[in-house]
Structures are given as C-alpha cells and as structure tokens.
Simulated scan of single mutants.
Amino acid sequence: MLRLDALGQRYGDHQVLHDISLTVPDGQLLCVVGPSGCGKSTLLRTVAGLLPAAEGTVTIDGTPVTGVPDRMSVVFQDYARSLLPWMTIRDNVALPLRRRGLRRAARRAEAEDILDRVGLTGTADRHPWQLSGGMQQRVAIARALIGRPSLLLMDEPFGSLDAQTREDLEDLLVEVHRTDGATIVLVTHDIDESVYVGDRVVVLSQAPAAHVVLDQPIDLPDPREQLTTRGAPEFVGLRSKIGQAVRTPATS
C-alpha cells in the first residue's frame, strides 16, 4: 500500500533522512520512533506529500506521491491549531465532506455518528474552546476518520496530553484500527505507546542523516488492555529491545 524506496530528505545542505526503504502493507499500524530531532516528523510530512522527497520515492498503491494524496488524513499533535474556533464541533468534523458534495444534512448526520464513535456524544453544538485538550484531540481524530481514509498519518497526536487521557486515546486508536482496517503510520517519541498500539515498530537512528536501525514486528495477543498488556513479559522484552535501539549511538 505504502512504499518508500531509498528515501532521503534534506534542508539545504543538512541531510535529515538517508536511504529509508520500507513497505507498509494494507491494514498495518506502523509506529515510527527515534531520538528527539532525528527527523520523524519530517518523514511523515514527506509521506504526506507536504514536503517533496530530496532523494528516492514514496508511492501509494504504486502511484508516486507528488502532492497530498486523496483518501489520506493527517492528525497533528497541535490539535488546538488544527480546529477552527469559530465553527461548532459538528462543522469542524464535517469539513472534509464538503469536497464530496454532500448536502448539509447528510454531512451533519455523518459528523454526529463519528462523534458518537469517538466518545463525544452531545458535543456537536459546542465550540473547540469549550472542550478539554483530550476532547479536542478526539475531534481532530473524528475529522480524520470521517472521510474513511485508506491511509491515516499521525504525528505525535497524544504527546501533550495527560497520562490517563493518553491511554484512553491509545485504546481508541487500537479500536479504530481493528474496526476500520485502515493503514496507519504513527510517529511517537513514547516507546511504550509504540509497542502497545503497533503491529510493527521502526526505529530511526540519531541525527544527522537518520536511517532505519530496527524494524521490529509486534506480536502481542489481542485484545490489548493497558494493565494486562503492559505487564506481560513479551511487552517488557519488546520495550527493552526498542529502547536499546533508540539509545544506540549513530556511529555504532
């Protein structure tokens, strides 16, 4: 579904990403982790077509990415800036449906259905500034899901939330992935999170010129549950292996 071939990215003379080759099958939830500043978000923006690749190619279903692809959605960490404060929650969520030419009543009905699904029943007539941070991020996720994307990109979407809210949204992501079967690429700095939600974790090396140092399948039983899964010996072993890879010096 998604393929990166010898992908490289640079800002001027500064090499950020080097020779990244990955194939992400349909329906996989891939987590990308690595040291702070290694280029994880740059990788995601390149996949999204927001930055042209300096080297190599990104293809989706065999088609090279030269701009923002159709049927792709992105959820950013800065949820407050991604929501339009003068619009109601319902209208924020329904915004992507305007491109499909749906009538207003149909857009509103679909928005309310997806709000129910992400646990925001009864918030449709409120505005973003009337909601907590965790609820605002649920709105951003609902807006990303309403177009039924085949590819969902998430750039540290839970990084600024408190621990309980973060766990709740991790469980929501797992449920959405299992139900919808969309291909998801999640960038996160949280190793535990990557092991808990992912089918596979890719570790990038330290900057400069980050490259893949570990490509680790995650074979944990379903359903996943915060306390039980995180306490399992298999989880602890995977977390240790990935953590060691993140901390390995780039020259080793």
Rank of each mutant, 00 (worst) to 15 (best):
L83D: 06
V236W: 01
A106G: 07
V236L: 14
G62V: 05
L151P: 14
R166F: 01
S132I: 05
P25N: 03
D26L: 12
V202T: 09
L84Q: 10
G231W: 06
R100V: 02
E167M: 04
R103Q: 15
I184M: 14
G49Y: 11
P233K: 14
R90G: 09
W86N: 01
Q15D: 15
L4D: 15
G159R: 02
T229K: 11
H189N: 12
V68M: 04
L7C: 08
E225L: 12
I89V: 15
M72K: 08
V185P: 14
V32E: 04
V187I: 15
R99H: 12
I146M: 03
I89S: 05
R126K: 14
V176C: 00
A53E: 13
H127C: 06
Q216L: 07
D5S: 15
R224E: 13
A142V: 02
L7P: 10
L50N: 04
R178V: 01
F158I: 00
L17C: 07
S194Y: 04
S240E: 14
D91F: 03
Q130R: 07
R166E: 01
T88D: 13
T59K: 01
S21Y: 10
D219F: 06
H127Q: 14
D61C: 07
G159N: 05
V118L: 04
I20F: 08
S41H: 04
G133N: 01
L131H: 02
R143Y: 03
V176K: 00
A80I: 00
C31P: 00
M87K: 12
S252G: 00
G134R: 03
V32R: 02
T88A: 09
G133M: 00
D215Y: 06
T63K: 15
T46G: 03
A109P: 07
L29I: 04
L43M: 12
V139C: 02
G62K: 06
S36Y: 09
M154P: 07
F76I: 11
H211D: 11
L95I: 03
D5F: 06
Q28H: 09
A111L: 03
S240F: 08
V212Q: 05
G12H: 08
D70W: 01
L131G: 03
G198M: 06
V24Y: 12
D215P: 07
G231Q: 12
L145N: 10
Q130H: 05
L50G: 05
